[in-house]
């Protein structure tokens, strides 16, 4: 949802706090669930993630989630799906070159990131999306890989 998405980058600091507090819990829970059910609940979990992140961030389920590095603005909503910053076509009012009625995702991302405590994460180079993860749950993948949630 567009308005919820704008809200997220405007309140990126609050989202960061919530994320940092809940992510270890979510991950450990998912690890336990995965151990017990051996992946049988992957589909409902993926569905649940899609609903939640879809509402909050207009998540496109790319399976390569980088929200905490992009000021809580999902880069997959950029028509060019740029993951490392805006293109050179941003309009003077800060709106998108392709969709003039939409705020540039990266204008949102930079302002969101400036509000966050970890405001250097946006400077990390994010290599292009791994398309084999499209439609899968980033949470489950991270839980299985034993990594920090992002």
């Amino acid at each position: 949802m567009y308005r919820a998405r704008l809200f997220a980058s405007r309140h990126a600091r609050a989202y960061e706090v919530i994320y940092n507090a809940t992510s270890p819990v979510i991950l450990s829970t998912l690890r336990v669930i995965n151990k017990i059910t051996k992946g049988k609940l992957d589909r409902p979990i993926t569905w649940f993630e899609k609903i939640i992140k879809g509402f909050l961030f207009d998540c496109q389920m790319c399976g390569n989630c980088v929200l905490s590095s992009t000021g809580m603005a999902c880069p997959m909503n950029c028509p060019k799906t740029l993951r490392n910053g805006p293109c050179g076509g941003v309009r003077e009012d800060g709106n998108c070159e392709v969709k003039p009625e939409m705020k540039c995702v990266w204008v949102e991302a930079w302002s969101g990131s400036a509000k966050m405590k970890d405001n250097l994460a946006i400077q990390e180079i994010q290599f292009a999306v791994n398309h084999t993860h499209q439609g899968s749950s980033a949470w489950i993948r991270l839980a299985k890989e034993n990594k920090q949630i992002i």
Partner: peptide, 20 residues
């Protein structure tokens, strides 16, 4: 493009490109 918004972040973008 040094002239389009967010202008103040363009320098960070440039740094990222050079680091890449």
């Amino acid at each position: 493009n040094p002239f389009v918004p967010p202008v103040e972040s363009r320098i960070l973008q440039l740094e990222k490109k050079i680091n890449a």
